[in-house]
Amino acid sequence: MFEQIIFYFFAALLVLSAAMVITVRNPVFAALFLVLSFFSSAAIWLMLEAEFLAIVLVLVYVGAVMVLFLFVVMMLDINLSPLREGFARYLPVGIVVALLMVVAMGLVVRSNYFGAGHYYASVPHEAGYSNTTELGNMLYTTYLYQFEIAGAILLVAIIAAISLTLRRVKLNKAMKPEEQVAVKRKDRVRMVKMAPEKREP
């Protein structure tokens, strides 16, 4: 009973904060709501005894990714009003599509094949059980192949980001005195021999 109350509390918080992310006008608030939604999903993961995932979500996403994200949001001067143009025009189409989707999803999710009774009930583990060890064992045996591909994807992301943003442009226009001192006349002045030109009278 107590567990259920906690679950519904965090689930409601998650849905609410996720909705706020896309509805609030201020992008900084949106980013902060995203942090809140990460926290509530981490709490739900804790209840599933996936401690490692919960901690990693908080450490990596909240601690690193979202802080960076906030930096970017604060640095950029985003004018949101052009983004909202045409909202009313596209609204009817959007509502029809959204309604269709909700009905179809409702049919699926409410079905007997998708309900909670369809899955194995989770059995609580004994005290010495280590979630991290189990995860490590899986990642480096059964899921080794996928794990390696994920690594390759991250490597590609790094290569792409660097090759697209790194410009070897000389921004610094400082002078080098030793070059200026060593300059010779022929480096600067070029004598050109040419036939004299006379304008026609």
């Binding site: 591909i149 390759a152 994807i153 590609v156 992301a157 290569i159 792409a160 090759s163 697209l164």
Partner: peptide, 11 residues
């Protein structure tokens, strides 16, 4: 596999 391919192609 699809993501690895697409990400390379985008860049």
């Amino acid at each position: 596999g699809l993501e690895l391919l697409s990400l390379s192609l985008y860049s």
